[in-house]
Simulated assay, not measured.
Amino acid sequence: MFICPVCKQPLFQTEKTCRCPRGHSYDLASEGYVYLLPPNKKHSKDPGDNKQMVAARRSFLETGAYQPFSDTLNRLALHLMQDVPEPVVLDAGCGEGYYTGRLADAFQQKADVYGFDISKCAVRAAAKRYKSLHFAVGSSFGIPFANAGADLLVNVFAPIVPEEMKRVVRPGGVLILAVPGERHLYGLKEILYDAPYENECKDTQYPGFTFLERTVVQGRYTTTDNQQMLNLFAMTPYYWKTGVEGGARLRQAEKLDTEICFHFLTYRRDADQTEG
C-alpha cells in the first residue's frame, strides 16, 4: 500500500528494495522498513525525534501510564471496523510503534497494519520490535500511501493535513484523531512555565469527513521518578519550546502530579460526489 513519494505510483517489493514502474527504487532497511521521505519534505538533516527522544518515549510508554488511552483507541477501532473483514489500518505519525503494535494485537492479525513517521530513528525502533507490521519513513504532508487505501486512519498527536487524510481514507472509511484535553499535562506545565495554560478544545470539521463523536479518557499521572518526568517531557511539544529555567526546574523536581486526558475524535469519510 505504500507508494513512490516522487511519482505516486505503486511500489513493488523485491528482496532488498521497493521499486515503482517508473524505476524509482528505495532500499529496504535490515529492520524491514522503507525510507520514503523526499529531500524536499525534510526540514532538517534528520527530522523528527532523535534516538534519545525515541528511547525516552518507549521507556515512558512501557510504564503503562498511557495504556488506558491505547485501550480506548483499540476499542474504538474494533467497533468502527466490525463490518470490515480484513481492514487496512494506517497509523500516521506512528513514532516508535506503541499504539500501532497494540492496535495490531487488538485485531488479532485480522488487519493489515501500516505505520509511518518522519523520524527515521522512531521507525527503525518500531520495525525492529513489530516485525509483522509495515513501516516507512514519510511525511504527513505527503503521505506515501495509496489513494483510498486505508479503511482506518489513526492519528495520535501527529500533524493533521486534511487534504492528505481525505486522499488516503476510502469513502466510508474512518478517521480517529487523538488530541489533548484542556488540562492534559497541566501539572507538568506548572513546573515548566510561570504562566501555565490550558489546551484549546473544539470540534473541528474536515472537508470530506462527517464528525461522529468525541470520546474523552482522563486520569492522573503521579511519579517521584525524575527520569520518567524527563522522559514524558521529551515526548511533548514543550520539549522544543521550553526555556532553560523551566527545564532546570523539571530536572530538580521531586514529584510530578498531573491530569492526563486524551480526546478521541472520530469521523466517517464521505462518499465522493460525481457529476452525471
Rank of each mutant, 00 (worst) to 15 (best):
P144C: 06
L37Q: 07
R183Y: 01
H24R: 05
G243I: 10
P171I: 08
V89M: 06
P5T: 04
G149I: 04
V244K: 15
G48D: 02
T266V: 10
T242K: 03
E163Q: 13
Q9V: 00
G187V: 08
I118N: 04
N147R: 12
C7T: 11
V161K: 02
P196L: 02
A234P: 01
Q13G: 04
C18L: 13
L232V: 07
D27V: 06
C4Y: 05
S30C: 02
S25M: 12
Q67I: 01
L153P: 00
K45V: 05
C261W: 02
E164P: 08
D151E: 14
G276R: 13
G181D: 05
L61C: 09
L175T: 07
L188V: 07
R75F: 09
D91K: 07
R251E: 12
H43M: 09
G101P: 11
F145D: 02
L90V: 14
D151W: 08
A195M: 12
D225M: 07
D49R: 06
E259V: 09
E96K: 10
L76I: 12
V84F: 08
Q252C: 10
E190D: 11
L133I: 12
R220I: 00
M1E: 13
D83G: 10
E200D: 14
A56E: 00
V137A: 00
C7G: 02
A148I: 04
A65F: 08
S132D: 12
S119P: 03
F69D: 03
A178I: 00
G181Y: 01
F60P: 06
